[in-house]
Design a protein around this nucleic acid. Structure first.
Lengths: 341, 341
DNA sequence: AAACAAAATGTAAGCGCTTGCATTTATAAT
DNA sequence: ATTATAAATGCAAGCGCTTACATTTTGTTT
């Protein structure tokens, strides 16, 4: 004997009013007199009524649900930002539908469609790089979205992110000024990941600024993982022309590199410098602490939510927010060996 | 001029069949002749039709959406398990609604209610510790749920987890056998976290097995964070009767402890042993690698999804799955100083 | 070719809610 | 009191889909 789940009707009957009144009590209480409101809310509580989501969505054409598609939940890169995003949504009575694409553009596209058909009122997307098709899909349906983790000036699309190119450029310049000339890179796949791509481009641009050849710059692309970082590090080190610095696309790769360096008996930064990106907690724990780029992930997540919510209220609202990054000085970046005294 | 979103009706009209047929094409294709099926699917594709989620939910009384409430997304503890959970759901055409409770029982309860009212077909809960009320709420509505990360024998409730007590007990026994007598603990708050609680209990039980006093066992409870691990470590070390080993409730705390040990110039494990729990990636990267407890998080997430899906199919299905754990030997646990030669 | 069973399709009644519009009630102004 | 105006409430039409049941089509058997 399962207790029937109460409906609006039940509440209406209980309070001796129409369903419309009950609905208004819940959604726009100011339209209802204090007296009836009280009466209705008492019944709501007594019956333990909760609105049926599907019915609400169907009738109101909104769900108070937002979707986010992240490339992965497996490492900490997105966790803090997402948590903040979710909390900000929560503060506004909305919930988060989360999907992950495993860094696969096709999967991402499916997820986007799926979230939309699930009635997501808006979407959080990571990075700018996806087919125009999918942007049109969203724009046609007037589904608000905001792009995070990347910054891009674009009047028609909102973003909250930081300039990966610039940050990477700055970090590289710092390394050059320490005397490094012999670079190697470990990056995520750049083809479908504008963050990774821009980080690599930032490095190359900085090198070129100083007249350093980038034609044969050793570059290994792989998925973000400690394991891959370690393996790629080894490959770089075993090259003929061993680099004095290995710049990693993120801290996870860098952590793997550091681990491998230890295992190969290389001193950091005396024998080899290593840099990361993101400044996840990990960066401060490993020995030596990573020199990396700090990003205010939490702030980014919160702002993304705010922008998105504003777009719901005001259809045409758009914003491009660029967050600062700063270089965190660990001890994994130092002068190259031939510059030391 | 926004292009109207196509409905079932549009497809039906386009294919010159009834909406019922279209619906069947999509949901139980075997009931439709190959010819019409083809015809219909062509129109579906042509129009880019996707079912309206709300309507579907309303009419079918299921959403293919599952909810999960995790204590936090901020550290890696839950990430791998959740990802696996989500992937397994995805393989079965379902999606994940994710919420986080910030380790707050009241928030968790709200989230559960919210997910249910959003039409979650089933729920993933972390740990066993919550008010009976909320269990009744779910059971009354016949909402399937599965408890993960904790193991508990209970015919009426499904769980997929491991025995925190046992694992912790084993690790402690190992430490005792190495000669440790002077223990200290850094744990998450045990009051509303049965995993943390059982881990502490496991330690105490092991100590008592060997006749070691646990009345005054130094125990600090705090939130999981590197920062807190570091601070708690310092507090323990500055005690009168300095412990020879500090056992941490998880790897994140342990990482903080290790960091602090370095900063205080303490050698691990010669001056102080440190243990973790969970064996997150972090554990293998820090120096020295942590001695910790490995849990097959991915497997757990996958199994949890399977149990949950089975419960949907077969209302009365229940399962209690206990996963093995194993001690991972890092170098952070060694003989206490007075035992060394 | 008739008779029947099985397969395919159509009809239409909701699912539980929101909301524009109509109606009633309370409040204010004359 | 009477009327005009505003506030509160009710009525009822959907929102887009699923599914029990009715009907038609197809195939099989005699």
């Amino acid at each position: 004997m399962k207790p029937e789940i109460p409906t609006l009707d039940d509440v209406a009957r209980g309070a001796n009013v129409s369903t419309a009144t009950v609905s208004r009590c819940l959604n726009s209480p100011e339209q209802v007199s204090a007296k009836t409101r009280e009466k209705v809310l008492k019944i709501v509580k007594k019956l333990g009524y909760t609105p049926n989501f599907g019915a609400q969505a169907l009738a109101a054409k909104r769900t108070n649900t937002f979707g986010a598609i992240v490339p992965t939940m497996n490492n900490a890169i997105f966790a803090a930002g997402l948590q903040a995003f979710q909390e900000e949504l929560g503060r506004n009575g909305a919930t988060l539908l989360l999907a992950s694409s495993s860094y696969n553009a096709k999967v991402e596209e499916e997820q986007i469609r799926s979230l939309v058909s699930r009635g997501a009122d808006g979407l959080l997307l990571i990075g700018t790089q996806r087919s125009e098709n999918i942007y049109h899909f969203l724009e046609d349906r007037e589904i608000p979205f905001v792009i995070a983790w990347s910054y891009q000036e674009n009047k028609n699309r909102s973003c909250v992110g930081f300039d990966n190119f610039e940050a990477s450029h700055a970090l590289t310049t710092k390394a050059i000024n320490l005397g490094h000339k012999n670079f190697a890179i470990i990056s995520a796949y750049t083809a479908s990941n504008d963050r990774a791509d821009n980080r690599v481009k930032g490095i190359k641009a900085a090198l070129e600024d100083y007249g350093i050849e980038t034609q044969n710059l050793p570059l290994i692309e792989c998925e973000y993982s400690i394991q891959n970082g370690a393996e790629s590090f080894r490959t770089h080190i075993e090259q003929d022309n061993r680099p004095t610095i290995i710049m990693c696309g993120n801290d996870v790769l860098a952590a793997g590199a550091v681990k491998q360096a230890h295992e190969m008996g290389l001193k950091i930064p005396d024998d080899i410098s290593i840099t990361g990106f993101d400044n996840i907690e990990l960066a401060s724990v490993i020995e030596p602490a990573l020199t990396t780029v700090h990003v205010r992930h939490k702030r980014m997540g919160m702002l993304a939510a705010q922008v998105l919510l504003k777009q719901i209220e005001e259809k045409s609202y758009r914003d491009n927010i660029k967050l600062d990054t700063q270089i965190v000085e660990g001890r994994s970046l130092g002068r190259p060996c031939y510059q030391q005294r």
